[in-house]
């Protein structure tokens, strides 16, 4: 199983008995996760540089973890530097733009500037959809920058049916279903509107427990082949793993 999206840093905030790494390792063994693809929660919400660096330390020592380098449209120069620093390392497999409420709408000038710089690295762009308007912004980005591939994590409050309809217009966008949005039908509709090669599994760890998303996928009314694609095959292909 390949986990296409999680965030590094939440467990540390909670100061729980288990460390972030212990929790991820335990779940990897229990559920058969071969790779976690994580973005730094700290880089998305706080210090861009320190957050990416803390995640990089983990990816360098643990082959289980791959990283998305986080960029911040409010800090264009620093974002360029972060992409250059980490995307030459094989352990970083994509670029994450924080959710719009934390940075800028996907259709904004600042976001477009970041994407312009990101194109040269030929890795997928991880984005977050808080509303269906964000899906329009993402569609506009992939149309403007040809060859750009994007992954969209749908968040609570997003009208996912409309978002899928909008995203279905570009083959360069896939969605990641996570335990952050558990409304019944989101997986089946994702498969129906985007196709079974464009839906990926994301645990949302360590913000939410991996079993939440896994439970959704096991329950969804899809074929076993589609389930397998969502749990592993699609992530391997979209993230070049």
């Amino acid at each position: 199983m390949v986990d296409a999206f999680g965030e590094w840093g939440w467990q540390t905030l909670r100061a729980g008995d288990e460390s972030e790494w212990q929790l991820l390792e335990k779940c990897a063994q229990r559920y058969g996760v071969s790779h976690y693809c994580l973005a730094s929660a700290e880089a998305m919400r706080g210090d861009l540089i320190k957050g990416n660096e803390r995640l990089a330390q983990v990816t360098r020592t643990n082959s289980l973890v791959k990283g998305y380098v986080v960029v911040n449209p409010n800090h264009l120069d620093e974002s360029a530097g972060e992409m250059k620093k980490y995307l030459s390392e094989g352990q970083f497999i994509g670029i994450a733009i924080p959710p719009p409420r934390l940075s800028h709408p996907l259709g904004s000038w600042r976001t477009a500037e970041v994407v312009k710089m990101a194109r040269r690295y030929d890795v997928p762009l991880l984005t977050f959809l808080e509303t269906e308007k964000d899906a329009e912004g993402l569609l506009s980005l992939v149309r403007t920058f040809s060859g750009l591939r994007a992954l969209a994590v749908l968040l609570r409050g997003c009208d996912w049916w409309v978002a899928f309809r909008i995203l279905s217009e570009s083959p360069n966008v896939a969605t990641i279903v996570t335990g952050l949005l558990t409304e019944r039908g989101v997986i089946e509709q994702g498969v129906a509107l985007l196709g079974d090669r464009r839906v990926l599994f994301g645990s949302g760890m360590t913000k939410v427990h991996i079993s939440r998303a896994l439970g959704m996928i096991l329950e969804a009314d899809i074929t076993d082949r589609q389930r397998q694609l969502i749990l592993e095959g699609n992530a391997r292909s979209w993230l070049s793993l």
Binding site: R30, G179, T182, E183, R184, H209, S211, R212, A213, L214, G215, M216, L218, E219, A220
Partner: peptide, 16 residues
């Protein structure tokens, strides 16, 4: 929260 939410998204975390 079923059927609005997937039932297993609540059951599995509890069982596990």
């Amino acid at each position: 929260g079923a059927p609005i939410h997937y039932f297993q998204s609540s059951l599995m975390p509890l069982l596990h």
